[in-house]
Each structure stands twice: as structure tokens, then as C-alpha cells.
């Protein structure tokens, strides 16, 4: 009767309690533009954390700060317990895919990984392993310029996995992937989490994040607007019961019955949406039956991540979509 909870599907090692990422008042300005403004992040180790926000919200800038690629204007952050001012202390344990994957187009996929393997002092055997993990073994010898965007994306993830990381930071990893590729990427990320690897994945595809993440950091206009578990976020949102009477003439009666019990209700097509938790479903069913109304459907709905995001940011009406933030799962 209730929507399936995707977060309950896969058992994972519980977070260790140690913070994989910790940021305090982290700020980055580019001239007059405030890309990231005093953000605080506390990300436990061992979770799959979604980092969501519209395009231009500050996701990539935050990731670049965490990887030591750009220097903060002010504030501090630690990754795997080490300050971002000393990236050499933690980057050997971090894999990253930053923005669109960038490679040497005339080199093969395997050669591109060899560049990074040699640079990081990593064993050459990792190349075949990670190519296999992302399903690129058969095309590994072909020049990257012949790869589709989805294949480049996979190669980017392979590059991120090269150092056998403790933390994987992926910036929009499903860009360019077809539905099957997205499903594989999701499985890959869950597999990483199952092995105790912390995954910090940015995306503006909310449905995708909702499907794979158990932790969430929301950013909007350079500021963190929510962080915590996905369950906490969604539980805090308004839930509704959707009751569908056998006959349409009973819709008004159902609305009145719900209102009399103190629950806001409205007609939505052939159903009535009642603002109430799942625990009131049995009572609604009982009262409807007492009023001579037969229900042919009764289910509880939970706010989606998309609705939760817009409720928190106030950026758009629920069900809408702000610029650069898409509820649609699929290619950009």
C-alpha cells in the first residue's frame, strides 16, 4: 500500500562515525561572485551521499575545494581527517571524477589510465581491474576520441577507482549515460558503499540521487540548505493519504469526513488527497465505511526529494522544476 523505500533495499555497513568530509564556514569567492558561502558539511564515512543543487549552485566549486584544486577564500575543511591545505595527505586515498571527464583523445582508454597510474605510483594491474568494473575492457585499446560521452563517463569513474579509494567524489557521473548505463552506475556506487567506501556524488538529477543515496547535502546559491539522512529529510516532509472511492459521487463526502477529523483534504481527479500520516489510513478507511463509502484504493504517499528540495529552497512550486534541476531520470 505504501511506496517502496529504495533506501531500505540494500544492507550496508553502518557509518563508522568518523567524518569523511568535514567543512567549516568554507567560502570561495571568484571576484565579486560568491560561489560558495560559509558552508558547513559533516559527512560520515561509509555512506553514499548525494550532493544536490541546481546548476551554478556551487557543487563543482565545493568539490574542487575538497580536492585541493582551488584554495578557499576563507574557512577550513578536512577530508579523511586531513586538512585540505595538505591534499597530498589524503588524495592518495581519494578517487574523483570532476565535471565532464577529460582525457587525452588520441590515447586509448587504457593508456589514459596508465598516465594516472604512473603518476600516482599505483600498480599497473589496477588498470584492467577498473576497466572491467566499469565494463570498458573490450574498448580499452581504442582511442578515447572514438568513445561516446557515456563511455568517457565510465572511463572517468574507472580513473576515480584506480587508487582503491576510501572516498570517491563523483561530479555528475550519470551525465551522458543511457538508462542501462545509469542503472549500472547506480549498482557500481552501491557496490562501493557495500565495501565501506564513502561515495560523495553530485547531481542535479533528483530522482537519481533519491534512488542511490542514504545521505544528502543540498546546496542552493552557494549555501547549504539541508544535510542529513534521506530518511530524515523525507520524513520531515508532509505525507498524504490518497483515497479513491468506488463512486465519484462520494468524493465530496470524503473531503468533509477528513476535514471533520482535522485533516486538510482536496479532490485530485478521481481521488481525495488527505494531509495525514500513514497511521491515519486505517481510521480513514473505517470512517469511510461507516459513512457508506467503499474505497477501492487507499495508499499513503511521501514527498519526493524533488518536492522536499523545493519546499526547503522555496525556489519553485512542488512538482515544478527550477532551472538546471531536473526530476527526470536520464541524460542531460
Amino acid at each position: 500500500m505504501t511506496d517502496a523505500d529504495p533506501h531500505a533495499a540494500a544492507p550496508r555497513p553502518s557509518p563508522s562515525g568518523e567524518a569523511a568530509i568535514q567543512a567549516s564556514a568554507l567560502t570561495k569567492h571568484f571576484g565579486e561572485r560568491r560561489a560558495v558561502e560559509k558552508i558547513d558539511i559533516e559527512l560520515p564515512a561509509g555512506v553514499v551521499c548525494g550532493f544536490v543543487g541546481p546548476n551554478g549552485a556551487g557543487k563543482t566549486t565545493t568539490i574542487q575545494l575538497l580536492l585541493g584544486l582551488i584554495k578557499p577564500t576563507s574557512g577550513t575543511a578536512r577530508v579523511l581527517g586531513q586538512p585540505i591545505s595538505a591534499p597530498q595527505a589524503y588524495l592518495p586515498h581519494v578517487g574523483a571524477l570532476i565535471e565532464s571527464p577529460s582525457f587525452y583523445p588520441t590515447l586509448s582508454g587504457a593508456r589514459n589510465l596508465e598516465v594516472l597510474t604512473r603518476l600516482g605510483g599505483l600498480p599497473r594491474t589496477r588498470i584492467a581491474e577498473v576497466l572491467s568494473q566499469v565494463g570498458l575492457t573490450e574498448r580499452a585499446g581504442e582511442p578515447v576520441r572514438s568513445y561516446s560521452l557515456g563511455m568517457k563517463q565510465r572511463l572517468g569513474v574507472a580513473a576515480a577507482l584506480l587508487p582503491t579509494p576510501k572516498l570517491v567524489i563523483l561530479d555528475e557521473p550519470t551525465n551522458g549515460l543511457d538508462p542501462a548505463g545509469i542503472r549500472e552506475m547506480r549498482a557500481l556506487m552501491r557496490g562501493l558503499a557495500d565495501r565501506g567506501i564513502t561515495v560523495f556524488v553530485s547531481s542535479h538529477l533528483l530522482a537519481e540521487i533519491e534512488a542511490i543515496c542514504d545521505h544528502l547535502v543540498m546546496i542552493d546559491s552557494g549555501r547549504i540548505v539541508f544535510q542529513g539522512t534521506m530518511t530524515d529529510l523525507l520524513a520531515a516532509q508532509r505525507s498524504e493519504l490518497v483515497a479513491t472511492p468506488e463512486f465519484g459521487r462520494d468524493l465530496e463526502a470524503l473531503v468533509k469526513l477528513s476535514a471533520a477529523a482535522g485533516h486538510d483534504a482536496r479532490i485530485d481527479g478521481d481521488s481525495v488527497r488527505v494531509v495525514a500520516g500513514e497511521d491515519w489510513a486505517a481510521e480513514l478507511n473505517r470512517q469511510a465505511m461507516a459513512a457508506g463509502i467503499t474505497l477501492r484504493g487507499l495508499r499513503s504517499t511521501r514527498a519526493s526529494l524533488e518536492e522536499a528540495f523545493f519546499a526547503i529552497t522555496g525556489g519553485a512550486e512542488a512538482g515544478g522544476s527550477s532551472e538546471g534541476l531536473s526530476p527526470i531520470r536520464g541524460e542531460d
Binding site: Q64, L67, G68, L69, L91, V94, A96, I98, E99, S100, S102, F103, Y104, P105, V115, L116, L119, G120, A159, L162, P163
Partner: peptide
Amino acid sequence: QGTLRNLFVR
């Protein structure tokens, strides 16, 4: 090409 960031990470 944007490959410098990959190099900096490794």
C-alpha cells in the same frame, strides 16, 4: 583539455 585537474588529484 581539462586533464590538469586529473593530474593534480593523482
